[in-house]
Design a binder for these strands. Structure first.
Lengths: 225, 225
DNA sequence: TCAAAAGTGTTTATTCTACACCCATGG
DNA sequence: CCATGGGTGTAGAATAAACACTTTTGA
């Protein structure tokens, strides 16, 4: 049985959650949009395969990545029975955009405007989205999607995108601060408004310790169903 | 590459969380305790393979089952490169105990007294346990582990086992009732105490709707890390 | 009648929520 | 000087936690 890995790569750019897609280079379905994938090598672990595949696309290492689910319906690949172990990755979109479009034929798509994908890749994306909500309600993974310095409105916008809801800014900010996960910095980002919004950074110590503090963050947990 | 499924089967018997293990019938590691597993057939989906394997062991169908994770380290099986797609299952232990020991060489072990397992099966169990806590903090899966009629002290004991903590019975009962997931019945279970404890049953309608109501149930969420 | 387990009540502290208000500044 | 987005304050509701109390009944 053939075994492949496929990566669902999420990014965020202040307006929308985005996903990284590539145009498939080989038959079948050549030219269509697809997740980034590749076959697992004979002496390669699954995590290693996923990292390698992502590295080949973005040139990056140490990207947050986690196994999502394995897809193995007999008919999912029309040519040959292929198992796909899917992984999702979160990264700060800003850092990589330029080198991406130059070296590889990859593109960021807003999740809401995603094209049709080959095989069962759309299903993979749907599950990854679900998992993102799920995990993020328990673990502060959002910082993987933001630049090292970010503002409260930015962070709130990300939450609102992911949970497709709106938060009261006052309550959001207080709750977030109460986790001790982030630290306020001295300077402001003036690009978004006249007053300017303070920058914050992730507090890596408490990040490790309070890895579960984000719980109780989502007002109506039915979003997660 | 060979592809197998392995099932982590949980049960609960009022005293302890238990796990179902079998004595391996073939080399390598013949005679040692292992998870229930088998190879995926050429035209068989992964979920179907897991159900079949569990059915062969317990004779049961419609058991709650979910894919956990795929294990694929190159060296995990010493003989040949084998991928294992692991599944965890939850079932009401009481219903199946007798037929199990007769037809198959399987045994329930208390999680705390589990023997050493072959390959990476212990790691699978650890991850399944973690997942059980994780998911159960969001979804009311516990009813899969209980008989159709159960008492509040039973339910509380199950929670205390899974989260390795203790709850105040008053608060526990109120919180549980407030989810509307369960309905009080008229008769009592007198086996556990002189006074007797009322039976409850799962409310299947609200179970579907309020599938996320269990959240906020665990007092110290650090258990889930 | 008493011990043991089930179940109820109540007080207090804490956290949520909604919403009004103040602040800073570029145009 | 005012519109706009950022940030703070606060009253009232809702929830959680702790623990004392009542009920039931077999031994």
């Amino acid at each position: 049985m053939l075994v492949a890995v496929d990566c669902i790569v999420f990014g965020f750019d202040a307006n929308a959650l985005r996903i990284l897609l590539v145009q498939r280079a080989l038959e079948p379905e050549k030219g269509k949009w697809s997740l980034m994938g590749g076959f697992v090598q004979p002496d390669e672990g699954l995590d290693a395969a996923a990292s390698r595949v992502l590295n080949q696309l973005t040139g990056l290492e140490n990207v947050y990545m986690e196994q999502l689910k394995t897809f193995g319906d007999p008919g999912r690949d029309p040519i040959e029975r292929t198992l796909s172990v899917s992984y999702y990755a979160l990264l700060d979109l800003n850092r990589f955009t330029p080198q991406l479009s130059d070296e590889y034929h990859a593109e960021w798509f807003a999740l809401k405007k995603m094209p049709a994908l080959i095989f069962d890749h759309s299903e993979m994306v749907a599950q990854a989205r679900h998992m993102l909500r799920y995990k993020a309600s328990m673990h502060p993974l959002f910082f993987e999607l933001l630049p090292p310095r970010f503002t409260m409105p930015q962070l709130q916008a990300l939450f609102e995108e992911v949970y497709e809801t709106n938060f009261d800014k006052g309550n959001f900010s207080r709750k977030m601060l109460s986790t001790n996960l982030i630290t306020k910095l001295d300077d402001k980002d003036k690009s978004g408004s006249k007053k300017g919004a303070y920058f914050y950074k992730l507090n890596r110590q408490t990040y490790k310790k309070n890895f579960r503090k984000v719980l109780h963050f989502i007002p109506n947990p039915n979003h997660l169903i």
